[in-house]
Structure formats: structure tokens, C-alpha cells
Design a protein around this nucleic acid. Structure first.
Lengths: 363, 363
DNA sequence: CTGAAAGCGCTTACAG
DNA sequence: CTGAAAGCGCTTACAG
């Protein structure tokens, strides 16, 4: 027979153990105030009765829900791009929360930032969660104002620090990533590269744009840049435009793996060889980048570990610590078979070769 | 100045409105027991004070957490396959819960079914959630026993009914799907087909296997079957084996889109044309199936709507209704450019052509 | 229709 | 060290 009768409370345990409920509470929570003998007695009785703390009661009395709230924005367009990112990020977060018995309170919406904002506001006002994590921040996002006006509510943004100024933020090091890519191509001897960028409505697109331009300028390189959606189609389309230039770039950098895969197809369908005729690099790494022919050199970041870091920061904030702007772990460049010296070039400038799959630290 | 001072309670509202807390409670919850005048007064006062119900207190007193628990199994192998499925499913679930102010309590684990089982048990014992949703059930899954021994706990399995016998289950109609595929090929005139199946450790693989065999037998068709992982590599590898057969099948059905894409590559790399030399069908539809050349005929199901249906069933169970085994919406066959009459065959048997992208109801 | 009161299950000062 | 008691914020019989 199981313990499925009715819920057993601390009072039941107290009665069975012949002590007061406060003694039971102290014993169960490992607090001082009970003798070791009593504590042992209580623990064994509670154990044998199958007692388990009622989460609602606990939340009410210590005003901790043991959950952190996250609302995901669903764009019905992208089938995996952000889906995978969110999934991995949640997995990392969950793994950290697990150890302290916290859960994720999840909500998904197709209503964009304003719908998400409404949910967060609701959670704040009802004390539904102990902390909030917000992703997918947009320009003029109402969630920024919401949390600015509730400075005591623990929240962590996963966004560019430029957009969340002043709010606790775990930011990606996109500028450093862009420079890493440019330097890699520079060391291989490229002097004219192109960038197939993501939509201009994202802050990170702008940041990558300007860091790329800046680094190229420093190194005396030319860089052309076109923007498009994160799709194979746009990757191919923009690649074809670049290939049509009278003065053709010798390397193309893509902001997303779908774009890069589309670009690879386009290049090869035109009878050009990668990396002999042209080098390709993908921002965002994925299994598809690894299994393409040739495998794509890609800027890689461990999204799950980002989720973990976010979890640690959130727990710290719940414990009263103050968090400012914290950088994610740097990107790493996974050098694979899609980058090489430009055709007809002299020896590479630096010492980096493209023979082996090596890992360069970002930044 | 906001309402961020200290939390305002029902007692504050009662005092401000000059009534008792019970009157406030009745008024706020739309229950009878207060005059319309009092109700209006209370509502406006509560509104102006910015009162919001405290979720923990509410949970404690009516023993409803307003959340349903789901724990996701993370296999660090598959990057998107199940990731997308889970994401879409959660999105559907979330959209249904939203309207009744329920949230998802989420946990992710890499510890497999047993780790998931521990979490569910914990939730049951602590009253952490009002209902449970379980996915990714395995053979001899401990979660089956857990919920069998807690018949009063609302739970819904998303699994094959064969494995959850007796437990509330939303099951996929894989057998019907398999038959739909076979009939489509039969109508086109195929008499010898092959099946690149998923791993034999999944119940749905076995179900698809046997339904395929059965339907083929009925229609006098021959079917060869090989099993492999859900990967492009295995899709290509098994396809090549089939192509090497002295008596080559004229159509191949893949259990997953990755396999199908890998198979498509393999076929084309060998100089064969799809669908002229061989027809290909993918179980599981995706953007990649739509953008391949030619686009793949695929068995499609709307995962988000599955999530919605699951949500509705779960809410019904929370309200005391009994749920048994319920079928998902049937698969639909999206006929695209990868299926056609076998080379050198006469007119198709049935009336189905492969010219246009039509939708056939599954089953 | 309305108010006073007990209860949900746990925590935490406060006196012995 | 230990017990009796109040409190967390809300709901719901129970008497007026």
C-alpha cells in the first residue's frame, strides 16, 4: 500500500514523533533549535511516514516560489534557428536550477514582446516566480521599462548590453567574434571579404557589422556587406550577388548556418570549389555545418553553458547579490575545411593554417 | 510612483472598501454572496490599489497550483529532431493553458526516464503541479509504474497506446500513417518498395514496420526494411544498400526527415533521378523537406495542435474528467515532387497523380 | 447580503 | 532545547 491516502503534514509527523511542529520544522530544515536526538527521531519518523513538504505552504510562508519565469517568443517562421537556441539555453538553466530544487515556469507566446511583457508583469504582481529571464529583446522592448520600474525584482536579460543599459544582462561577445573571424581570414591572406548579414532589425547584426568593418579597416581589408533573412534562400541569393561582382570577394562570412548552407550550395552549383575558389564561414555552428561537404568553418558558442551561467546569476540575484552586465563565454572559431588561402596567394601572413580542425579562442 | 512598496493584500482592500475580507474574496472571484453594489465598490477599490492575488496563498487555500508539469528528456545527440518536436508541443500546450492562467512547470534532464521519474514523484508528493505531461516514453519506463500507483494524479502520456495501456494517453496514429504511405505508392503503381526505418528500440518504429508490412501484403506489394539512426548518414548508408540490390525497389520510405535528406543526396550522387528513377517519401515533415530539390513528399503532422489537444485533455482531467486513450489528429500526406509512377510503368492504378501538391487525409 | 472565524501547511520569533 | 502561538494571503462554511 502506498502513501496515496491523504496528504500528510508536519503536524502528523509531530504527533507521531511526540514533539511540537516547530521542532519538526527545525529538524527537517537542518536548523538549530533541536537536540540531535530529537532531530534523528523526527527525520526517521518523517521518512517512514513518507512526508514531503507542501510546496504551496512553503512558498506562502517564506515567500519563495522556487521557480524562475521565462517566456519564449514564438515566431512561426523559423523552424529551428531560435528553437534550438531556446531549447539548449533552457537545458542549461534547468541543470543549474535542479541542484537547488528550482523549476522553470514557462510560457510561450506568439504575441511578441508586448504579450511577453504582460506575462512578466502578471508574474511580478502575483509573486508567481522568484526571478525572471528574458530573451529575444527587441528595439524599444516594453520589458525594458517594466523591469526598470521594478528594480527590486530579480531579472536577467540575455541580450546585447547596448540595449539593456543598466539592467542585469548576460551579453554575447559578438564584436569579439566578428574580429576573430576577420583576423582568421586575414591570416590566411584574404584582403577582400564579404558578409552576408542577418536582418538589420537586430542589435547584434549591427554590432557584428560595425566590428567587422572596423577590424577590416585596421587590417587594410575590404569588406562588402548585404543583409537578409536567416534562410537558405537568402544565403544563396546574396551569395550569388557577391559572385557576380566584377571584383569578387575571396571569402564570405554568413550570420547564420542556414544562410551559410544555402551559400555553399549556390557556390558549388556555379562550379566553384570551396575552399579553393572561395572560403566560407558560418556564424552559428550546428550539426549541419559539420556534415556538409566540405565541413564549414564556424564561429561556435556553447548555448547550454550560457544557460548555466544565466542560472547561476539568477540564483545569486535571488540571494540578494547585485548583477550588472556579464559577458558570455567567448566564441570559439572551429576551423574546418571551408576556409583556406585565397587562390593564387602567397604564403599565409600569420602562422595559422587551415589543414587541421583547430580551436581558436574568440577575442 | 508605482505599487512597488509592499505587497497589498485582500485585507487592505477590505479595509479601504469598508467591508470584510470575505466580501472582498467573493466579489473578486465573481461568486455570489455580495450585492452588486458591494461588488462594484470592491472591484474598483482593488483595481485602484493595484491588488493582485498572491499565487502561493491561492494555491495553498484551494490546493491548485495552476501549473502543469513536464520534464523533457535531453539526448545530447540529436540536435533538432526531438528538440523541435518538444518546442512545438510546448507551444501548443502553452497556448491552451494561457487562457485559463495556467503555466508550464518545466524541467529538463539528461538522466533519462529514471531521472524524469524522480522529478515527477517529487512533484506528486509536494503537490507542485496540478497535472503531469510525459513524453519520450521508453520500454519498461519507470514512469508508467509511478503513475499506475497514483491513479488519482492527473497525467497524460504522449506515446503509443500499446506501451501505456490503461493510462491516459494521446497517441499518434502511426499505423494509419504507414498505410497511407503504402497506398499512395500503390496507387502510383509501385509494387516493390523499401523502408529505411528508425531504431528498433522505439515502439513507433515497430508499429510502423508491421503496419507497412501488413498493408503491402494486402496489396500484393513487396517491402524490404532496414533500421538505422535518425541521421543523414544512416539515411544515405541504407539507401545505398537498397540501390545495390539486384532487384532494386522503386520507392523508399524514410522514418525521419534527416534520413530522407541523406537518402536524397545519396540517390542523386549516384546519378539517379528523383522521382523518375526512384520515389522518396519522408515521415516527418520539415522546412528542409520543402526546400530540397525536388521537394519531398512527406507525412505531416501538426505538432503544435497535438500540444493543444494535450492541454485540453489535461485541463479536463484537472476538472475531474476521465481520459482514456485518445488519438492525435491523423497524419496528412503532403504530396510533393519526390514521388511519381515507377519508371516504365503503365498508367497509375488509382486516380492519384503526383503533379500537384495535394493533401490526402491520413487513414 | 454580510461579518467573524477557522483552515490550507509551513516558518519563525517568543516565552518557558 | 522545546512548546504554544502568530503569521504568510487567500477561501469557505457558519452564524447573523
Amino acid at each position: 500500500m502506498g502513501a496515496s491516502k491523504s496528504t500528510i503534514t508536519i503536524a502528523d509527523v509531530a504527533k507521531a514523533a511526540g514533539v511540537s511542529t516547530s521542532a519538526v520544522s527545525y529538524a527537517l530544515n537542518g536548523k538549530k533549535g533541536v537536540s540531535e536526538k530529537t532531530r534523528a527521531k523526527v527525520l526517521s519518523v518523517a521518512e517512514s511516514m513518507g512526508w514531503r513538504p507542501n510546496s504551496a505552504a512553503k512558498s506562502l510562508s517564506d515567500s519563495r516560489t522556487r521557480s524562475i519565469g521565462v517566456v519564449l517568443l514564438m515566431h512561426d517562421t523559423d523552424e529551428f534557428a531560435s528553437g534550438n537556441y531556446n531549447m539548449e539555453c533552457l537545458a542549461g538553466l534547468s541543470s543549474v536550477l535542479e541542484s537547488v530544487d528550482y523549476s522553470i515556469t514557462l510560457r510561450m507566446t506568439t504575441g511578441g514582446a508586448s504579450a511577453a511583457c504582460r506575462i512578466h508583469r502578471d508574474w511580478i504582481e502575483s509573486g508567481r516566480v522568484d526571478a525572471h529571464m528574458v530573451l529575444g529583446v527587441e528595439f524599444d522592448d516594453p520589458r525594458l521599462d517594466l523591469f526598470r520600474s521594478h528594480p527590486n525584482v530579480p531579472v536577467l536579460f540575455l541580450a546585447q548590453e547596448q540595449t539593456t543599459r543598466g539592467l542585469p544582462t548576460l551579453y554575447s561577445t559578438d564584436a569579439d567574434g566578428a574580429r576573430t573571424v576577420v583576423r582568421h581570414l586575414h591570416e590566411l591572406g584574404h584582403t577582400h571579404i564579404a558578409r552576408v548579414a542577418g536582418p538589420e532589425q537586430y542589435m547584434h547584426t549591427l554590432i557584428r557589422d560595425s566590428a567587422t568593418m572596423d577590424e577590416c579597416a585596421k587590417l587594410g581589408m575590404r569588406c562588402d556587406c548585404l543583409h537578409g533573412e536567416y534562410s537558405r534562400e537568402d544565403g544563396a541569393r546574396l551569395t550569388i550577388m557577391f559572385l557576380g561582382f566584377a571584383d569578387r570577394p575571396t571569402a564570405i562570412v554568413y550570420d547564420g548556418d542556414s544562410q551559410a548552407l544555402g551559400g555553399l550550395d549556390a557556390v558549388q552549383n556555379r562550379g566553384l570549389a570551396v575552399p579553393d575558389d572561395i572560403s566560407l564561414i558560418s556564424w552559428d555552428d550546428s550539426a549541419a555545418c559539420r556534415s556538409s561537404v566540405p565541413p564549414l568553418t564556424a564561429l561556435h558558442r556553447d548555448v547550454r553553458s550560457i544557460g548555466k551561467k544565466a542560472g547561476r546569476l539568477l540564483l545569486a540575484m535571488i540571494d540578494g547579490e547585485t548583477v550588472g552586465a556579464v559577458p558570455e563565454d567567448p566564441y570559439t572559431l572551429e576551423v574546418r575545411g571551408s576556409t583556406a588561402r585565397p587562390a593564387g596567394s602567397a604564403e599565409p601572413v600569420g602562422s595559422a593554417g587551415s589543414e587541421d580542425s583547430a580551436i581558436l579562442p574568440g577575442a
